[in-house]
Design a protein around this nucleic acid. Sequence first.
DNA 1: TAAAATTTGAGTCATTTTGACTCAAAACTA
DNA 2: TAGTTTTGAGTCAAAATGACTCAAATTTTA
Lengths: 256, 256
Amino acid sequence: MFDKILRYVESVEKEAIPQLSVNCVILGFHEKALHVVVNRISLDSVHLMVLPGGYVYQKEDLVVAMERIVKESTGLEKILFKQFAVFGKASRSFNREFTKSRVFKSKADKGVLDWFSKRFVSVCYLALVDYSKIELRPTQFMDGAQWLPVNKLKELAMDHSDIVKSACESLRKEMPYTPIASNLLPSKFTLPELQALVESILGRQIDRPNFRRKILKTGMITKIGSDTSNKRRPADLYAFKHGRKTSLIEEYRFGF
Amino acid sequence: MFDKILRYVESVEKEAIPQLSVNCVILGFHEKALHVVVNRISLDSVHLMVLPGGYVYQKEDLVVAMERIVKESTGLEKILFKQFAVFGKASRSFNREFTKSRVFKSKADKGVLDWFSKRFVSVCYLALVDYSKIELRPTQFMDGAQWLPVNKLKELAMDHSDIVKSACESLRKEMPYTPIASNLLPSKFTLPELQALVESILGRQIDRPNFRRKILKTGMITKIGSDTSNKRRPADLYAFKHGRKTSLIEEYRFGF
DNA sequence: TAAAATTTGAGTCATTTTGACTCAAAACTA
DNA sequence: TAGTTTTGAGTCAAAATGACTCAAATTTTA
């Protein structure tokens, strides 16, 4: 069991930059809450919750590695992303996860222990995707990715919980400058939906009439029809004027 | 000549994370312009202009490596810094600098060529320092660091010019949220001095009376006396209320 | 030595933006 | 049909903004 993984890891390592990894905080918006894609690694009865990530191949651009990793987990290409942090403490390895587990203790051979003790520097990206367009894919040695709401996030392995926190911080900071939301919503949406998204990113409530006034004045969205609705009074439908973005460009300024 | 360098590099490499480097964009403010610290590597008659940088040792935190590099070039500790980008294209090496130079072509042995062809992923930090407190130090194999104004920057080696540009972009974005300036100015300064700094970061002029009004309303600075002056009407002296910062915390909000 | 020029500090004012509201319309509920 | 919920539209006082003018303090120059 461990042998198989170890052989796989070692074969990948040969073509990759050693001790360097990419981790992706893939964020989507669902039921009025930000969600993040988390993978579960199962080794016998031990389960590690980790962010999607991996090595960077020698002949692969860093960004291409990131896009490959996002595609592996979500199937999506041409996503909006941002490099927001690098985690690189000297003590940064899976060693703690390894040694605190009895299963690892008993069954592990030296090779696995070595790999789990290896120091990694991780370049972290956040990726914003349309929740409704995703079909999560199990990847090799991962028994299924899943969406978890970021605010009620369980403990992830190593420092991956910190990475998610840092990603949300970064998103919140970027918010006032960019039409970020266009990548987290379906192409057609209502103002209340957009407001719920902005509120969940900023982490605070916004007065509804004021939100409407401000967001419309930026000129970043256009009304494209009515209705769709389900409950109560039908809401107007809007779309971002320039569609989805794949890079963060300062175009509009607004602050809440 | 090359042998000596090669032996040095190889000895460092053994204790360091391979193919990973840290580069620092050390910024200071002088004569109404942002300046950046640049090192000159001389190998025979070939001169490379590069940003201060280096390896990360296996037992060294990433941030500690960055601080070590800044200290090597400027002598300063406890500086304000920010990780702002990672440069990691697959083609990223000094190979071009190597092959385009006749001196390298004729004299180089295989070891040097190999090192210069090695792909590096560089984690980039910007560091904000008080220009007046710096004494630039020559480091090993570097014949002297120097301050260069960022807007009339000559071509640096590899992609280091792009790194500087990216750093300035990042600084401009951070500006409205943080008392950044406190680390780029002497502890006592006049409002016109502060304004010149802010203008050089934002890259545009600001109305003087309006600047005064806004900056005072944030409450981040206090008047601590008069005069010092040199020319014309003496200006009031100010200091940042909470001194210098070593981390970027959102405390004040203002936008120009 | 007085007038001019330069730099800094202080103030005005119309316009815009903001934040906290109310109110009505359109649907569903019961 | 009355009540509830959700969305869209509007009001209004206070604050912020941008474009100004003007006076004070100093040096320059004539």
